[in-house]
Design a protein around this nucleic acid. Structure first.
Lengths: 117, 117
DNA sequence: CTTTCATATGAACAAGTGTTCATATGTTTA
DNA sequence: TAAACATATGAACACTTGTTCATATGAAAG
């Protein structure tokens, strides 16, 4: 292991460690942030979000579009909803889902830019 | 399951499904995008990235900062590096890691905005 | 009320992930 | 060359996650 002084002139250590410690958001916030990105970290959910970029859609249509069971989509929409990435609107038996806000689009576009460069 | 026509006046279906189908990026791209977000979806990695916001750091310092083994950090840095989120610079025995580009900061800040609202 | 249909939920299982331990690689100094 | 040290890597393990199947809930139509 590193013994407090593992380098020569370029040494940062102690100082940096303490400086960074003070600038780190608290653990709970960082945990929540990771949880948010975890939601984006599944291709089914990404596809659902991309689909909702175009228009609100009901569960069965998304299922048909992505060739997955209605149950799978419903489970995933639940995840997206509790992360406040989508919202639901009921119309009779049907429930229409749509993007909760524009953050979703921004985050995804930023990610897309990264992988396309 | 949904039988092609599950609603009344508000019906979208077929039309929307086909329209959205054409606008969806291809499967591989969507998969890669999900893989990218998966990398952000772990609080250890988020903490590492946040630490690197302040300054480049070597492996053992990050390990000390986050109270994790050097091995754990090294494994995670490998993940971050293959996603091109961080880059490495060797100086003697020590390897300093830093953010690969400004996308990282943008994506994380966007995520942070979402959870803080 | 009963049936039908869209959606939600719970259990179960396979597949994936993050950490630790042990050890290898590579660099510097004695 | 040998010892010391920072980092990397592989195997193993517990833990998490996404899907399916079966079934429950809730709304509209007969």
């Amino acid at each position: 292991m590193c013994a407090d002084l593992c380098c020569d002139e370029k040494c940062v250590h102690e100082d940096i460690v303490h400086k960074v410690e003070h600038h780190l958001p608290n653990d709970e916030t960082l945990y929540d942030l990771a949880e948010l990105f975890k939601v984006f970290g599944d291709s089914t959910r990404i596809k659902i979000l991309y689909a909702l970029f175009e228009s609100e859609m009901c569960v069965c249509d998304i299922a048909e579009l992505l060739n997955l069971t209605q149950s799978a989509i419903s489970h995933q929409l639940r995840v997206l909803k509790s992360a406040k990435l989508v919202k639901a609107r009921r119309s009779g038996k049907t429930v229409f889902y749509s993007l909760a806000d524009e953050h979703v689009r921004l985050i995804i576009n930023q990610g897309m830019e990264h992988i396309l460069e």
